[in-house]
Design a protein around this nucleic acid. Structure first.
Lengths: 110, 110
DNA sequence: TGCATTTATGTCAAATATGACATATTATAT
DNA sequence: ATATAATATGTCATATTTGACATAAATGCA
């Protein structure tokens, strides 16, 4: 079970708790995964709210459209560093970022 | 001016604002640097509070003493990912981590 | 003072993340 | 339906981060 698969499963609607159990993640692995997905979702939200395309955001952060897509997909190959730097590039404050960190993501839609 | 030097200057007592001006950092670079140093300081605080040596923490996170030292020194070669995962390994909650994110570090000691 | 323990720093091969690119898939409009 | 724009996915050479190791410097303690 690799990290990519885990992230995918998350994405497809597993509640975090369920997924963590199912995938036998340690508490710290669970926290880390949840965090990355929270950052990914917030990045997408913020980008679309600003009416930016992935390509234009990519320019802002000196990256590429494909990598922005991967960020938003919580692809296992993207680092928290890149997510955080991208969010800062979108004008996110540290306080705002803190809110993303503490928020509980992934209440599965009923 | 490389990243390591920047981090060092921060460490040696510059107020963030001063250092950012002096080093010509963009707002997002400043935020990112501040964040890393905040995480580094919190990691050290948390470790010492638990009476752990760098070596023992290293074992917990499957890393090495030298890398833990570098984390706590805000060495430019350590990622936010590693810092965050180490903090989780020390039992840090996402809420707690969020507090670290929003706190303003580096009021220079008078 | 010495001696042990802890922390800091430098280096390096291996592991991982990166931007770039091609291309597939999906959405949107006419 | 078909053209166009946007997003997703796969791959790869390069760059960065990694744990490990050696060793220096600092700290504590008899």
């Amino acid at each position: 079970m690799n990290k990519a698969k885990r992230a995918k499963l998350q994405q497809y609607g597993w509640k975090t708790g369920d997924a963590a159990d199912f995938l036998n993640l340690s508490p710290e692995e669970t926290h880390y995964l949840e965090l990355k997905v929270a950052l990914a979702q917030y990045l997408q939200k913020k980008r679309t709210h600003k009416h930016l395309t992935q390509a234009s955001l990519a320019k802002m952060v000196h990256s590429s459209q494909s990598r922005v897509a991967k960020m938003e997909q919580s692809d296992a190959t993207v680092s928290v560093d890149l997510l955080v730097r991208s969010l800062f590039a979108l004008g996110t404050s540290r306080t705002e970022l803190a809110r993303v960190f503490s928020q509980n993501q992934f209440k599965k839609a009923a």
